[in-house]
Nucleic acid binder design. Structure first.
Lengths: 107, 107
DNA sequence: TATATAAATAACAATATGGTTATATTATTA
DNA sequence: TAATAATATAACCATATTGTTATTTATATA
């Protein structure tokens, strides 16, 4: 299920608003009310994007009194980029499938 | 629009079937009819996944007689992983926004 | 040439995504 | 305590995604 998990993380990243939020968070932690005026969408929309990133463990939230600050989970982001660049070779599985006659020969 | 483009590429990658197809293609070029029996979905479904990957320039197709072989664009995959791990800092934009009074101060 | 095989496209359905407005929740302040 | 500010949640809508089956297109072969 490694592919499922990676796909879920990539889905969380595969949106321009969320990528830009992450870029802002690379500079410093931001609260929701800072992010809202930057983007041309409503506060609940931003809140949902942050919630999506949090579910994917790409960001963490910390309440500071009235505000909720979001911070980047750099490790998770780094890991995801690395996973993409190092997707497994599936040569063993291909051999296994050939053995079981599940692979059509095409040449 | 760099965020838009990266998001589009990530959307193409953000699916377990397509990630697995890419992993198979890391080992060797495959034709559609080889991939179909590996996954538990129909031939048109595989064909559409490949089409999505091709549109994102993550794979290339070559017809060999009856068969269409797909090969991985390793460079594009590598670049995407790198881009994720190196999303820009937006400190300048944050400063600019502060100057324009568009940033609420939260502490 | 007629038939079979490989792959793509069309038409459709169920679910996911990303936005909206309205409302609820939580914390601060008058 | 009442009012305000920040954030999250609910209900909803339009569009995208991902699968299906049926059909078309392209190539190879009897």
């Amino acid at each position: 299920m490694a592919f499922e998990k990676l796909a879920d993380t990539l889905k969380a990243l595969a949106d321009p608003t969320r990528l830009k939020i992450i870029s802002f968070l690379r500079t410093r932690d931001c609260c929701v009310c800072e992010l809202v005026p930057i983007f041309n969408i409503s506060q609940p929309a931003i809140s949902k994007h942050l919630s999506r990133l949090k579910t994917a463990e790409l960001v963490r939230e910390t309440r500071k009194g009235q505000w909720v600050f979001y911070s980047l989970n750099e490790k998770k982001l780094e890991e995801t980029g690395f996973a993409l660049s190092h997707l497994p070779h599936l040569s063993e599985q291909l051999k296994e499938l050939e053995k079981q006659g599940l692979l059509v020969r095409c040449e």
